[in-house]
């Protein structure tokens, strides 16, 4: 069974976090679910909070 990965978008700069790809350069491995990213993590582009990302439908 394959996991349904989701995408989240930063409200400030439009950067997209794709769970399937992760952000390896930021220390977030591919396949990391958004909810498993630490709460103090910030947007690598603009430093917005994790809570400033919204689910992309």
């Amino acid at each position: 069974m394959s996991i349904q990965y989701k995408k989240y978008c930063c409200v400030t700069c439009d950067l997209v976090y794709d769970e399937e790809l992760g952000f390896p350069e930021e220390g977030i491995a591919p396949g990391t679910l958004f909810e498993d990213i630490p709460d103090d993590w910030t947007c690598p582009e603009c430093s917005a909070s994790k809570s400033d990302f919204f689910l992309v439908e």
Partner: peptide, 10 residues
């Protein structure tokens, strides 16, 4: 830069 302004706003 953008980020310090974000922190200041919060």
């Amino acid at each position: 830069f953008i980020a310090p302004a974000t922190f200041a706003a919060k």
